[in-house]
């Protein structure tokens, strides 16, 4: 049952990647990457159960925090770059 969950989560991550490639705006891409990150957290937790190594949960916890900080950092970066008008290609 953990294998089925892992496969479903991988499918969700694949669809999120499709949206990240399609865009069209930079915010759509950030939204898709955020979704990919939260699904990675769930995937790590389920994968730890699949392989019988619950240590993966610590990685999932840290990943949840880093993912959030990363999204906020990328948003700040996009906002400042578009404000100053350098390298805004979207």
């Amino acid at each position: 049952m953990f294998a089925a969950t892992c496969l479903a989560l991988l499918a969700i991550m694949a669809i999120a990647l499709v949206r990240a490639f399609m865009g069209p705006s930079v915010y759509d891409r950030i939204l898709a990457v955020n979704m990919f990150g939260t699904k990675t957290v769930l995937f790590l937790a389920a994968f730890g159960f699949l392989t019988g190594r619950p240590d993966f949960l610590d990685i999932a916890l840290v990943y949840a925090l880093i993912n959030f900080i990363g999204i906020i950092a990328v948003l700040r970066f996009v906002e400042t770059v578009t404000h100053t008008g350098t390298g805004a290609d979207d």
């Binding site: 089925a4 969950t5 479903a8 989560l9 499918a11 969700i12 669809i15 999120a16 949206r19 939204l31 898709a32 979704m35 699904k39 769930l42």
Partner: peptide, 14 residues
Amino acid sequence: MGGAFFGITGAIGT
């Protein structure tokens, strides 16, 4: 499986 269903629902929605 319910969680997987709602996840796929959200992904299709995006």
